[in-house]
Each structure stands twice: as C-alpha cells, then as structure tokens.
Amino acid sequence: MRKFTTFTGVAAPMPAQNIDTDKVIPARFLKTIERKGLGKHLFNDMRYNTDGTEKEGFILNQPAYRNAEVLVVGDNFGCGSSREHAPWALSDFGVKCLIGTDFADIFFNNSSKNGMLLIKLPKPIVDALMEDAKLGANARLTIDLEAQEITRPNGEVVKFEVDPFKRHSLLNGLDDIGLTFKNKEDITSYESKDGSSRPWMPSLAAE
C-alpha cells in the first residue's frame, strides 16, 4: 500500500446523502480484474450521458474540479455493495481523502486498505468545509495526517480524530496481512481450542 503523505489539493463538494457504491462505479464495470484504470468510470452515470459525452452539471466535469483530490461528501457515502472497486476507482481518479459526517462501514474499511484517508467530523464542521469546497479553484485544503489537521482556504486549522492504528498503517503504507501474522501463535492457539469445543462443525475440504 502506498504511504499517505501530507498534500494540498482541490476539494469538490458532493453534498447528496446516501451516494451508494453503484453510483461510484456501476456493476457493468466490474468485469475487469484490474484495479488500475477504473478512474475513467468513476461516478460513470452521474458524470457521462449515455452517448459518452460529459454531463455539464456534474461537479467533477467542471474545470476547477477535474483534478480534485478531496471530496467533501454527504451522510452515509459508500452505502450499498461491498465492491472494493469503489475505492479503487476513486483512488485511480486521484482522490486521496474523503470528508463527511459518517461513512458506510464496509466502504470505510475498504478505503483505508487502499491508502485513502476518510475523515469523520461533526456536521457543522463538514458544512463549513462543504462551503470551502464550493470555492472552485480556490477550494484548496491541506490534509496533514501526521498532525491530524486540515488547513482551510482561509488558513484556519481543523483538527480531526482518526483510529491510531489506521493512521499508523496509512502513514507507513503497511499491509494488514503481514501485521496479523505477528499474532500467528494466538490464532493457532485459538484454532486448536475451538476444534475440540465444537466437534459438530462440518468440514468443507475439497474432495
């Protein structure tokens, strides 16, 4: 996983509630087994007309937001399908950070495993950042995960909370599986106890 480093980038406002992962990347684009290249289909049906031309009104089609690296989003962003193509598409487009009041659980976990930072903040602060994000080319936020700070276009600093382990993993680009193997003995010991306590568990070993 790539390391998360401090950056300053354009933030785009997406205030709608319940933006589901089918909207982030429709199912017909799940036929690829590649993680790269999904960015061109990000928000496909919100972003393009059926003839492939861009929808003028869509935020990421507007000149100021074409290279947005931050999305300030409405409640429950990422709800629905567990498809990890959603963070893959966001990441491939260039999005590094999402800010909202709350995110769907599975999407939240999937994103952090792909080097993206999801920041949860109280509604009044998200509302203020949403206003910042409407400033077009001036909608620039600095995201500093080390210091847990967002610097607004007016220079004001907003602190945020983040799970310390996720922070550590993001900053160092650490992979979960390698870390979990540090607990291999605990896992083995659990498994041996479990085997004897529930003798009725069937085995599905391939024949």
Binding site: S82, E84, D105, N109, D163, I177, T180
Partner: peptide
C-alpha cells in the same frame, strides 16, 4: 457480515479479521 476485497484476501490468508466492535 460483508467485507471488501482486501479483507477477503486477509481472511483467505489468516481466517481472521480485524474489526472495531459495532
């Protein structure tokens, strides 16, 4: 509960999952 592709890889490899208590 449902999980994402990275978590699928984690479960394949370890038969475990890190989770925050809901």
């Amino acid at each position: 509960f449902g999980i994402g592709a990275s978590e699928v890889a984690h479960v394949f490899a370890t038969q475990t999952l890190w989770q925050a208590r809901p």
